[in-house]
């Protein structure tokens, strides 16, 4: 809605119409799950930013005499290690807190890379001549033919196992969704009158793409961004679990699970807590995504 004509109409209507942000917040607030999701996400983001300063211990420090100590409420546990220790005597709570930043980082990087690349290619496909569009969409079909985790796994095997490479692989795998989404909304927006009038006034193709059409295609893309944020965290953890993501001793949650696997029948806490952290984070983001969709998509609004 940043093009000149609609700003003017908005001004003409004047005070009766609340600002978009206010309107969005009004609908978003009604969804209790989404607000809870937002709160959890805020805590998660806070831990991601300040984790190392909040954690009671260093995430990699090994207290050899306290190895595999249970959480404090169980016999043998102590309040020094609230959630117990792992097989090497590292404090679980500290590792979980510090681990938040890796998942957060993965989500941010993957979504920015996949979304910016996907939006660009999608816009191009929507505005380019038919044959370019066909080629782009065929390439996206090819990427989508591979199950995402498998493709990411093979890509990481090529690039070498590390968190950065896992992020690159996941971004490549997720990016076709943005291309399809952007192209589809560009196709439907392009035929509308406001685009035609912008063209008649003399707007160039680039201006049409980025200034006239793109802002009106953003709603579904924002929702997709939230959903792929959680997919990215899940996939990165899965890759870490398979030994193809972050490498030990990094306290990434999936990698922590992989290290804990052999102790599952002896020490439930080394397995339970990292997975719970992944689940709660992903769940919060999905709740947030559902709320965003309901608040942003006028078709689903009030249905």
């Amino acid at each position: 809605m940043t093009d000149a004509s609609s700003t003017q109409t908005a001004k003409a209507i004047g005070e009766e119409r609340p600002s978009r942000l206010k309107e969005f917040w009004f609908y978003f607030r009604e969804n209790r799950g989404a607000v809870i999701g937002l709160w959890i996400f805020a805590v998660f983001a806070f831990l991601a930013l300040f984790g190392p300063w909040i954690a009671p211990h260093d995430a990699t420090e090994q207290f050899r005499t306290n190895a595999l100590q249970p959480p404090f409420w169980q016999e043998g546990g102590s309040t020094e290690f609230l959630l117990g220790t792992d097989p090497l005597g590292r404090d679980m709570l500290s590792r979980l807190i510090v681990g938040a930043r890796f998942s957060f980082f993965v989500g941010i990087v993957v979504v920015s890379v996949a979304a910016s690349g996907g939006i660009l290619i999608g816009l191009l496909a929507g505005f380019a001549p038919k044959w370019v569009d066909t080629i782009i969409m065929r390439i996206m079909d090819i990427i989508l033919a591979f199950p995402s985790l498998l493709l990411a796994l093979v890509l990481v095997a090529i690039l070498g196992p590390s968190l950065i490479n896992a992020m690159i692989a996941i971004a490549i795998v997720l990016q076709p969704h943005y291309v399809r989404l952007t192209r589809a909304s560009v196709m439907s927006e392009r035929q509308k009158d406001y685009v035609t009038s912008a063209r008649v006034v003399g707007a160039g193709t680039l201006r049409l793409m980025f200034v006239t059409v793109l802002p009106n295609c953003l709603s579904p893309i924002i929702v997709q961004a939230a959903l792929s944020f959680s997919t990215a965290i899940l996939d990165a953890a899965a890759l870490g679990f398979l030994g193809m993501g972050a490498q030990p001793p990094t306290p990434e949650w999936g990698t922590m699970l992989a290290e804990a696997r052999e102790f599952i029948l002896r020490a439930w806490w080394v397995v339970t807590f990292p997975g719970l952290a992944i689940l709660v984070t992903v769940l919060a983001i999905n709740l947030l995504g559902d709320g965003l969709r309901d608040a942003l998509d006028p078709k689903l609004k009030r249905s």
């Binding site: 899940l234 999936g254 696997r261 599952i264 397995v271 339970t272 997975g275 689940l279 769940l283 999905n286």
Partner: peptide, 22 residues
């Protein structure tokens, strides 16, 4: 359903093993 949809299934598998096998 939302919890299931958000589930890291590799962890879910380990939990089930702990409870039902262990």
């Amino acid at each position: 359903a939302l919890v299931g949809y958000s589930m890291p299934i590799f962890w879910w598998a380990l939990l089930l093993i702990i409870v039902f096998s262990g």
